[in-house]
Simulated assay, not measured.
Amino acid sequence: MALPGEGEFSLVLRADFRDDAAWRAVCAEIDAAEEYSTATFVSDPRFAGVTVQALLDEEAAAAEEDKVFHVFLADAVTMTDAEHRLLAVDLADEPGRTFRVPPRWFPDVSVNLGIANMDFAEYADEVDGTGTYRGFGGED
């Protein structure tokens, strides 16, 4: 179940396949939030129901050149939540650490993690009471 390499883009991995319209809405919201897309959308049924632990196990077994440092999981919560909050998963620095991020904030998180301008923890440390990143200082 190797994860697709992320290259310069952030991997948005579909893990819930019960509602195609919800998936399309999530993708559209992410695309609408940024001028130049930084998302690589993966809708592959082999990832149905994938857990954070399974992602960590897969990364632990991956060759160094195939490592993915973070992933944005479109899980059951994402698909049923009115905000379509993705689950950001750290696979490198603090493997398994997570937070939720609405599509509105995806570009900020994606770009800064992608260019290593900021660390995963800097975002995870700024979550609200629901575990959701809404900008520094809760700007949303």
Rank of each mutant, 00 (worst) to 15 (best):
E58K: 12
V50D: 02
A88Y: 09
E8R: 11
P95L: 13
E65F: 12
W105C: 06
L56F: 08
E65N: 13
D57S: 12
R18M: 12
Y36L: 14
R18I: 05
G96K: 12
S110C: 04
A76I: 08
V12T: 07
R85N: 12
L86C: 06
A124Q: 07
H84R: 14
D140E: 15
W105Y: 13
L56C: 14
A88S: 08
E126L: 06
G135K: 06
V127I: 04
A2Y: 13
M1S: 13
G138F: 05
Y123N: 01
A82K: 13
P102E: 09
T132N: 08
A54N: 10
C27E: 15
A88V: 10
D66F: 07
H84T: 03
L86K: 01
L73V: 06
G5Y: 11
V71P: 00
L73D: 01
L13A: 07
V101K: 00
V127D: 11
D20N: 10
G131M: 05
V42K: 04
E34T: 08
P95D: 04
V127S: 10
I30Q: 00
D93N: 15
E94D: 15
M1W: 14
A92E: 11
C27F: 09
V71W: 01
E34C: 05
V42Y: 03
H70D: 08
W23Q: 01
D90V: 09
W23H: 01
Y123D: 00
H70E: 08
N117W: 09
A21F: 10
G5D: 12
A33F: 03
V101Y: 05
T132G: 08
M118F: 12
V26Y: 03
V101C: 10
A61P: 11
Y36K: 14
F47T: 10
V77G: 09
T51N: 05
A116R: 15
E34K: 06
D125G: 05
I115A: 07
A39K: 03
G137M: 09
F106S: 03
E94K: 12
A60L: 12
D16Y: 06
D66V: 06
E122F: 07
F106E: 00
Y133D: 00
W105N: 04
A74F: 00
F120M: 06
E58C: 13
